[in-house]
């Protein structure tokens, strides 16, 4: 190992500080989740550890408030969305990045354009559609989620596909690969960081979505995580203990997923997987 210079030490301090600030609010959520309501608004407000820590909040959200069911709903919805958005977006991004056709620029601009509208205007028409088709309170909600996340997924993948050396593709074509096979065998592995980054972003966007899920899946048994947590309050009381406990709980699945896939984001060309 090289000797650490002052610059390195400065970097280290910066990294630690940076991570601390990033993690602190979440830590505070966890700390608060072990406090009683009296502690949260009393003398122990700023205490790191409550004098009488409690797990009541966790018990309440798991057994009475059905947070586990909400986690299940959100996981299924987010996973479905991620899978089909990634497939749809990668197919389209490949064509847009590699082929010339009439209206190509227009298509790219339209994809960008639809993501400029606020989600609230989607709600009315999509609700009507879902009501007519009997799709309220079902996993069909993944369909409109796709449209929220598709534009960014297509754009991200487009930029990454363009970075793949064209010569590789030519070679594949010489070998008689179909477009589908070229995409799957050549482009996908090289552009993996972009694809995984976009998949993670899609997953978390679907996981975070609030307005559509509030109206389309309003039944308690179909509620998603954000809606379920936000409803842990009424006119006079915000159950901070329960909200923080639920927030801490629901963050775990997403963190596990990120932990599993984080390696894939940093691979591709940089890892030397491809030699030209």
């Amino acid at each position: 190992m090289k000797k650490k210079t002052a610059f390195d030490w400065a970097c280290l301090v910066f990294i630690i500080l940076f991570l601390f600030i990033t993690v602190f609010p979440f830590l505070w959520i966890v700390i608060t989740s072990f406090k009683t309501d009296a502690d949260i608004h009393g003398a122990a407000t700023y205490a790191l550890l409550s004098a009488h820590p409690t797990i009541e909040n966790y018990i309440a959200v798991i057994f009475d408030k059905g947070v586990l069911n909400a986690i299940k709903n959100s996981l299924i919805i987010a996973a479905l969305t991620t899978v089909y958005v990634t497939i749809t977006a990668s197919m389209s991004a490949y064509i847009i990045a590699r082929f010339r056709f009439k209206g190509r620029t227009l298509l790219v601009v339209i994809i960008l354009g639809v993501s400029m509208f606020p989600q609230m205007i989607l709600i009315g028409p999509i609700f009507n559609m879902f009501y007519q088709l009997g799709w309220l309170n079902s996993y069909m909600i993944t369909l409109p989620y796709g449209c929220i996340t598709l534009p960014s997924a297509v754009w991200i993948m487009m930029t990454h596909f363009r970075q793949v050396p064209a010569s590789l593709e030519e070679a594949a074509k010489m070998d008689g690969c179909s477009p589908w096979k070229t995409l799957w065998k050549i482009i996908f592995p090289i552009a993996a960081p972009g694809i995984f980054a976009s998949a993670i972003l899609t997953f978390i966007s679907a996981w975070n979505e609030y307005l559509l899920s509030l109206t389309l899946n309003s039944d308690v048994s179909w509620m998603s995580v954000p809606v379920r947590i936000a409803s842990l309050q009424n006119e006079y009381t915000i159950y901070w203990g329960q909200i923080t406990a639920a927030a801490a709980l629901v963050t775990i699945p997403t963190l596990i997923i990120v932990l599993l896939f984080q390696k894939q984001i940093v691979s591709g060309i940089a890892s030397g997987g491809v030699k030209e």
């Binding site: 609700f127 309220l136 309003s218 842990l232 006119e235």
Partner: peptide
Amino acid sequence: WIEGSSKSDDFKQQLMTSLSAGSDE
């Protein structure tokens, strides 16, 4: 009993969206 959101604004939004779709849920 169909439980709506306990946040008043959200409750109204759910309600109005449903009613304006002509829903009888």
